[in-house]
């Protein structure tokens, strides 16, 4: 009891959970019968439970779901499968206690998980082709309008924002390898980008696709070259600007031009990512 008048919240919470011994519980209940303030505190604890349970459950974003598919696909390709025998999943799942929760929270349906392909060998640089194809399979309809959705295809361990990409799904184009002659135009808009803006469309921020150009900032140039090499393709636009108030270089690379998908890389002055790579629309 606090100040010899009221019980503290922890005692009341333990009472509610049945954690108090019988004698203490009886004592607290007797007090509750005559103390409005403690009764109010107990009601406050119940309200906490209701508040927590009222938080809506959202479905896993499509981009995250597909990113996981991609990670599992990569795992299969690496030969990470270590099963000696195939588990009987149906049997295992049969007794699952939470298959049908008492009060399932509403969730927004997302595209089905793409079945993992059998492990196969292919160049690591082409891994991005799989989620694009998966995205084609994961077309969903919003408001009656067909929308082929694209995924976040960030590398392992990266987080990822998601941007839906409108347009017909198609096979990914092959990315040209960076050559020594490659160059890119760098804008210096000074715009302070938000995460939402970098989900696209980007054309309004970067201007028309600039193609190649010259760049006098060696540090930026090196950083862009590094990212271009990592992604194995040329940037279509680079903007020296800000991201959430921080100095940033924003790079846009075609992920799949046929479906208007752009990969966005945001780095700070030291060429470190300021946000996980994500996909956006170009126009």
């Amino acid at each position: 009891m606090t100040g010899d008048t009221h019980y503290d919240l922890e005692i009341l919470a333990e009472l509610a959970e049945g954690l108090l011994d019988d004698a203490t519980a009886l004592e607290v209940r007797s007090h509750l019968a005559i103390c409005d303030a403690c009764g109010e505190s107990l009601a406050g604890l119940a309200a906490v439970r209701e508040l927590l349970s009222a938080v809506p459950m959202t479905a896993m974003p499509l981009g995250v779901a597909m990113r996981i598919d991609r990670a599992l696909e990569a795992e299969a390709e690496r030969g990470g499968l270590r099963l000696v025998e195939t588990p009987d999943w149906d049997e295992i799942m049969k007794d699952s206690p939470w298959e049908q929760p008492a009060e399932p929270a509403p969730v927004v349906p997302v595209a089905p998980v793409v079945p993992l392909a059998a492990p196969r060998k292919k160049a690591r640089g082409r891994l991005w082709a799989m989620p694009v194809a998966a995205a084609a399979a994961a077309a969903v309809v919003f408001g009656g309008v067909g929308l082929a959705t694209q995924l976040v295809a960030s590398g392992s361990g990266d987080g990822g924002a998601v941007a839906p990409v409108a347009g017909p799904a198609a096979s990914p184009e092959k990315s040209p390898l960076k050559t020594a002659e490659s160059a890119w135009a760098v804008r210096a808009s000074g715009h302070n980008y938000t995460s939402r803006e970098l989900n696209g469309p980007l054309l309004g921020y970067f201007g028309p696709e600039p193609g190649t150009g010259s760049n006098s900032d060696e540090q930026t140039d090196k950083c862009v070259a590094r990212k271009a090499n990592e992604l194995d393709r040329q940037p279509i636009a680079v903007d020296r600007a800000f991201y959430n108030g921080q100095d940033a270089t924003i790079m846009a690379f075609w992920e799949d031009k046929t479906i208007n998908a752009v990969r966005v890389v945001v780095v700070g002055p030291n060429c470190h990512n300021l946000r996980p790579e994500g996909l956006a629309t170009w126009n």
Partner: peptide
Amino acid sequence: HIEGDTTAFSE
């Protein structure tokens, strides 16, 4: 087995 399992894991 591997093919079957990967499908199952997707599920």
